[in-house]
């Protein structure tokens, strides 16, 4: 094992990430073997990808927040709020689709800015901010849509159907390209730019960074803003694959997004984040959801299993850190 860890290729990729990919492949194989024809390869990959799209953006977003040592579990309801409000504008007020899409991301950005401002400038604990903005997002979406569900245009829609091209064009999964591109950009921002450096450092020791003359409040807020924008994009991919959104929901995706992130090796204490890990983590969570459904189990079991996974992943992180100290 030690020898394996010292291998330059393994070192470069990270042992954890290799293990995670292994788990991913193994899971797929097990599902296929056990379920047989109930788990058709093509369809399963397609539905997994559909899940990866929106969940991936949520996870990438929350990775930035967790890197600062904070948390945001309003992302699921905020995603629904974005899709609902902008979708309602399109269907009921005749706002053009392109504008609605921009609006969708902007709403996410607004929530992110609001959360970030409260956390960094007003020193409100992140979990309280999350609870509050979760409620506000749900309430806002319900009030705005008068508690009706909203359906985004289908691909057969002659005017606005084009927006589905973000997910697939003639069966080609464009979505995966967009997702991976955004993930790479996120990675570059986090590891290779000034804001990313500051976000990681302040997650590790905020006071030392502040005393170096860095405006920690600004950069902390930026992390929440990045998260908010990515949540807005996630909303677009959600409606582009699942069409309809209902007000009052979205909580369960919080957990799944955080699960993907923590599983990938991002530490809840802050300062340590892995975009690559998050991407693989998201694939695992998404595949798991498909597997659970193929087993004939429902949303209930999905939630229970995801809950347990997060507990295990976080506990692994906590105890690994304790051993180090």
């Amino acid at each position: 094992m030690e020898k394996l860890k010292q291998n330059p290729i393994v070192k470069k990729l990270g042992l954890n990430r290799i293990l995670l990919v292994g788990i991913l492949i193994l899971m797929f194989a097990v599902f296929k073997v056990v379920l047989g024809s109930k788990f058709p390869v093509g369809d399963s990959i397609k539905s997994t990808l559909n899940y990866v799209y929106f969940l991936g953006f949520l996870s990438l977003g929350v990775t930035f927040v967790i890197a600062t040592g904070g948390i945001d579990f309003s992302i699921g309801p905020v995603m629904f709020c974005c899709a609902l409000v902008s979708g309602y504008c399109m269907t009921s007020y005749g706002v053009p689709c392109a504008v609605a899409m921009v609006l969708c991301v902007l709403i996410g950005l607004c929530f992110g800015t609001f959360n970030g401002w409260l956390v960094s400038y007003m020193s409100v604990p992140p979990f309280i901010v999350s609870m509050a903005s979760m409620n506000i997002a749900k309430g806002l979406a319900s009030v705005f849509t008068k508690t009706q569900s909203v359906s985004w245009p289908l691909s057969s829609d002659p005017v606005n159907g084009w927006f589905r091209n973000i997910v697939s064009v003639n069966g080609f999964p464009v979505g995966i390209l967009i997702f991976l591109t955004v993930a790479v950009i996120c990675g570059i921002v986090l590891y290779r730019t000034k804001p990313g450096r500051y976000i990681l450092c302040l997650g590790s020791n905020s006071e030392a960074v502040r005393l170096s003359g860095v405006n920690t409040r600004k950069w902390r807020m930026l992390a929440y803003m990045i998260c908010g924008s990515l949540v807005g994009i996630a909303a677009l991919f959600f409606v582009a694959t699942y069409t309809t959104v209902q007000p009052g929901y979205g909580d369960q995706y919080n957990n799944e997004a955080i699960a993907g992130c923590v599983m990938g090796g991002t530490s809840m204490v802050g300062g340590l984040a892995s975009i690559g890990g998050t991407v693989i983590g998201v694939f695992i969570i998404s595949l798991l959801q498909q597997g659970i459904m193929a087993f004939g189990l429902g949303k209930g079991q999905q939630m229970i299993i995801t809950g347990i996974i997060v507990i295990v992943a976080v506990y692994a992180d906590v105890s690994a850190r304790r051993r180090k100290n």
């Binding site: 579990f73 909580d251 369960q252 919080n254 957990n255 955080i258 949303k299 209930g300 079991q301 999905q302 939630m303 229970i304 299993i305 995801t306 809950g307 347990i308 997060v310 507990i311």
Partner: peptide
């Protein structure tokens, strides 16, 4: 948050 999901699922 996890037990929230677990109880909701249950």
């Amino acid at each position: 948050l996890c037990t929230c999901m677990i109880t909701r699922g249950a």
